[in-house]
Computed example of a mutant assay.
Amino acid sequence: MNIGRYRITDVADMPPALATVLGVVVIALLAGVVWALLWLPDHAKLRSPAARERAKRRKESQKRQKELRSRRESLQRKAARREDTT
């Protein structure tokens, strides 16, 4: 007898009380998995106003830094071109 290979007919041959307990356990397990997935902390959500404000400031700062970096690289390329032509 293979323990891991039950067929639906094998479950149907179980006593009704055991089948009921097995059904309740399976449903409870599924409900627990769904509940756990729904209540997992979502780190992408910004729950507090302070966290939202920090995220906004961080995003603006990153945007400013990107613009400054792009400007600096552009000036460096211009300076390199001037050196090449002279």
Rank of each mutant, 00 (worst) to 15 (best):
A55M: 09
W39I: 14
G23K: 09
R7Y: 11
Y6R: 10
G23R: 07
K45T: 09
H43Y: 14
L40D: 13
L38C: 13
L46G: 00
A19E: 03
V25Q: 01
V21C: 03
W39N: 13
L46T: 00
A28Y: 08
L29H: 08
L37W: 09
W39K: 15
A12S: 10
D42C: 02
A31N: 06
T9G: 09
V26D: 04
V24T: 14
V25D: 01
M14A: 02
P41L: 06
A19T: 01
R52L: 12
L29G: 09
T9C: 12
R7G: 06
I27T: 09
A12P: 04
A12G: 08
P49F: 10
R52W: 05
V33I: 12
L37T: 10
W39M: 15
L30K: 05
R47F: 09
A28R: 03
I8R: 00
L40R: 14
P49S: 13
Y6V: 14
D42P: 03
L29K: 02
L46Q: 01
R54L: 14
V11C: 00
A44T: 15
I27M: 07
L22S: 01
L22R: 01
T9K: 11
R52H: 00
G23Q: 04
V26K: 11
A55S: 09
L30W: 04
V11N: 02
P16K: 05
T9A: 12
Y6C: 14
I8T: 04
L18K: 10
L30M: 01
V26M: 06
A44F: 14
V34P: 07
M14I: 03
L30A: 02
L46H: 03
W39R: 15
V24F: 06
V21P: 01
A19Y: 04
D42E: 03
K45W: 05
